[in-house]
């Protein structure tokens, strides 16, 4: 096609190139449609994930109904499936992670965005990115072989001795369990909080800081104004990190202990939705067993999608509009 076109053009350069223009407009449209089609594949990909997970959990949905979510007994031999211990374990380990990761992450973000000398800031930011790139399994092996013995021999005996009057710190020092999972998860999601919160802080108008300082605010009081203005976005960053923590699988599977009991103690072992799938999916015999595990995946999927959608909206709301305008200008 294009050779014919160039040949024709060479033969009679004076001819108004209407045919050629029409062709090129057609080519433009074909090109745009083709690219657009690949973009639509995103919907297909998400659709397939949803479809497969829903289809896989259909038998369990039909048989078990709502009891699935509130049942505490998980007995594949008797075909009893109650997912509450896993839901509980997921929420508790993630909440524990957030309690540690949010202050740490926001503090670091403030340091990077407002306080650090440029060089030091660049180094810390790079380390945070490296931390984000470490595979989950590596965190897991470290949590299992390094953190667990440390917790077992030092931290947990101390907690039991001094804070043992609280139900949170009763029981035996296993080393593995909720506390270990929470710490490992905190380290894993901190980079998400740091990098997002830092970007949000940097997107805040510098005039706010100037205004506060010019009024006689100390540096910390000026930071307070900035954080105040950035609050929705930082909340979004935290929620996004929560989404990561909820779905995190390998590291948690290796350090949480994998029992399906609900315990008030943070020192006790437990399980999460993700870890039970990782542990039992390949060994699941029987259609209902497999379907029950798939339904856990469905619940986890729904939970993370809702949380992610919310977080993205919050982040967009605080910075998105402005940044997009800046980007296209």
């Amino acid at each position: 096609m294009s050779t014919a076109l160039t040949a024709g053009a060479a033969a009679s350069p004076m001819r108004p190139a209407t045919a050629r223009r029409r062709l090129s407009r057609l080519a433009d449209q074909v090109h745009q449609r083709a690219l657009g089609a690949t973009a639509l594949l995103v919907f297909l990909a998400v659709g397939l994930i949803v479809f497969e997970v829903v289809r896989g959990s259909a038998p369990a949905l039909g048989t078990l109904g709502w009891r699935f979510l509130i049942g505490t007994e998980w007995d594949p031999v008797a075909d009893h499936y109650g997912a509450l211990p896993y839901l509980f374990g997921t929420l508790v380990s993630s909440a524990l992670a957030m309690v540690m990761a949010v202050p740490l992450g926001v503090g670091t973000a403030v340091y990077l965005a407002e306080l650090a000398p440029p060089r030091v800031g660049a180094v810390v930011a790079f380390v945070v990115e490296l931390l984000a790139s470490i595979p989950s399994i590596v965190y897991g092996i470290w949590g299992l072989f390094v953190l667990a013995p440390f917790l077992r021999s030092l931290v947990e005996p101390w907690l039991i001795a001094h804070l043992g009057f609280l139900p949170l710190f009763q029981g035996f020092p296993f080393g593995i369990g909720m506390l270990n999972a929470g710490i490992v998860l905190a380290v894993m999601v901190v980079p998400t909080i740091v990098s997002l919160a830092r970007e949000i802080l940097l997107a805040m108008p510098g005039s706010l800081r100037e205004a506060a300082l010019a009024l006689g605010a100390t540096r910390a009081e000026g930071l307070g104004v900035l954080l105040d203005a950035a609050r929705p976005g930082i909340l979004g960053a935290a929620i996004l990190a929560l989404g990561r923590a909820l779905g995190e699988t390998m590291a948690v599977t290796m350090v949480i202990g994998n029992t399906n009991r609900i315990s008030a103690s943070l020192l006790a072992p437990g399980s999460t939705m993700a870890s039970v799938i990782a542990n039992e999916f390949t060994e699941a015999t029987g259609q209902l067993y497999l379907s029950a595990l798939t339904e856990i995946a469905l619940v986890l999927f729904a939970l993370t999608v809702v949380i992610n959608a919310l977080a993205r909206l919050l982040v967009l709301w605080t910075t998105g509009g402005r940044r997009d305008v800046a980007g296209s200008a």
């Binding site: 397939l48 799938i277 995946a297 992610n308």
Partner: peptide, 16 residues
């Protein structure tokens, strides 16, 4: 939103 889907869930979907 898709980037936030847990990898284990994607594994379950790929299984099916």
């Amino acid at each position: 939103v898709m980037s936030g889907v847990p990898s284990i869930v994607v594994g379950v979907a790929a299984y099916g």
